[in-house]
Design a protein around this nucleic acid. Sequence first.
RNA 1: GGGCCUGUAGCUCAAUUGGUUAGAGCAGAGCGCUCAUAACGCUUUGGUUGGGGGUUCGAGUCCCUCCGGGCCUACCA
Length: 572
Amino acid sequence: MARILITSALPYINGIKHLGNLVGSQLPADLYARYMRQRGHEVMFICATDEHGTPAELAAAKTGEDVAEYCARMHDVQAELAEGFRLSFDHYGRSSSARNHALTQHFAGKLAENGLIEEVSEKQVYSHADGRFLPDRYIEGTCPNCGYDKARGDQCENCTKQLDPTDLINPRSAISGSTDLEVRETKHLYLRQSLLKDEIDRWIDSQTDWPILTTSIARKWLHDGDGLQDRGITRDLKWGVPVKKGDADWPGMEGKVFYVWFDAPIEYIAATAEWADANGKSDADWERWWRTDKGGNDVRYVQFMGKDNVPFHTLSFPATIMGSREPWKLVDYIKSFNYLNYDGGQFSTSQGRGVFMDQALEILPADYWRWWLLSHAPENSDSEFTWENFQASVNKDLADVLGNFVSRVTKFCRSKFGEAVPAGGTFGPAEEALIADLTPRIRAYEAHMEAMEIRKAAGELRAIWVAGNEYLQSAAPWSAFKTDPETAAAQIRLALNLIRLYAVLSRPFIPDAAASMLAAMQTRDDSWPDDVPAALAALPSGHAFTVPDVLFRKITDEEREGWQEKFAGARV
RNA sequence: GGGCCUGUAGCUCAAUUGGUUAGAGCAGAGCGCUCAUAACGCUUUGGUUGGGGGUUCGAGUCCCUCCGGGCCUACCA
């Protein structure tokens, strides 16, 4: 038994996430966590809402709420949706927690002690009307290069030229439109990542089995131009972790907070402490996951995220950990994902284009989405959601191949033998062949799950379901029953046991359907099929079962067309 | 501009890292079965691996070039 620490990239607080966000981090992390638990490993699966930063403040202002209230409310909304998708977090924390405040300040203090923090005076644009400093991209104006009048302060979207906010002609606040702007001197802390470049570089080089997507993004940032650049880790905002050096004040940094990307990854650790607090555990209970001097050396730490998050997880967070010179756990494996597109374009939170988590659950149960998203996870390149593909995949895989298998077996048994596993008969060559086929398939499925090859795992699982239908066709218990009911009984006994086996194997992908299948088989035996022949004898003769309701109803053409239309444009 | 990823059957994707005749699923066609959610099974059509050139006994895989798609480029997170 191993100990596995799993974190999913933290969803930002600012609104409900779409399916692209879901499939890029939380959902595959859940698949892995569920699988590892089922294999008997000790799992700590952590997620949290990422609550700081300018967009959170602006979103709160828009609804008229205090930012703390807004975040508390949206945290609950996201937690409920996570529950709806059956994301099995051990703890769903908040980056605004007291634990994270303390830990973030602690790390900053250690980094300062180790000479890795630099105070830098710089000029930033202040908006009088908004009462705040503006990040570069919140300043709009006319591009000096191409004349585009909605150029942002960091870059012109029209001609792609990199800009400085002071380059803009007629600059204005993107928040209020105010032109009452002023360039002010302000002091910020920089994390001197450049001093850790070689250390990080060697660490990345030693990760030979990471996805190319992960290492290539890390190397780009390490080697591009002048190499890894120092990074500002404070902001002039009100909402966030106040800048402190451990417990002590930080002279000259009053009224400033840490940059959200400094405190967000630290929340992985802090959320584990929140877990301990919430469950009456001690510090030692969470430290054994995170401190290599307190038991964490045995832990395998795996992170899941979309490709946009990779730089922060391969560079800045490791720089924080390494630079502390304290024995914190570094990540062992980073599983990163490309983007899921929506019907020929991108999912867009701002334009309301695509399907969002709340809408998805209003339409269909979580298992439908889990199966499609995971079996089409954008592992090697961006992938695309279309309603046609969704309908076809879900109807075929879930309704026809798996659901109908359960249905045909249980209904046949009920009508011929009654609602209990029939006795009599013996296994012949067809049964031996099925078992011989299933064993290597299950081993392959396990290997794909271990390797986080999600599409391949889904494909193998589906093939395992298909094997059941192939077996039924060749055994044809409906024919055998007419001349040799004993043989038919043995065949159906095996088929009923297949349902239990499928429930166990399928649970990481479709937990609700798996639970329904186990409930219908009236068994709590959900042990993993290390021994396949034994697993197929788990339900003995005479064991009562029930015929379940249709596991997966089909998506009709009318529904599909309606959804296509409904989700094409802006969100209502 | 620079960098990275990507292009394989109508669609979605594989191909043990350079090895024999490029494979699956879906869709299409044909046959079979009748237990089942008109479900299932079997067979089958379909590819100049984006174009061109090169290295090699051998290239989907490596190199060059052109074309297309996507992402990143450090103050959104």
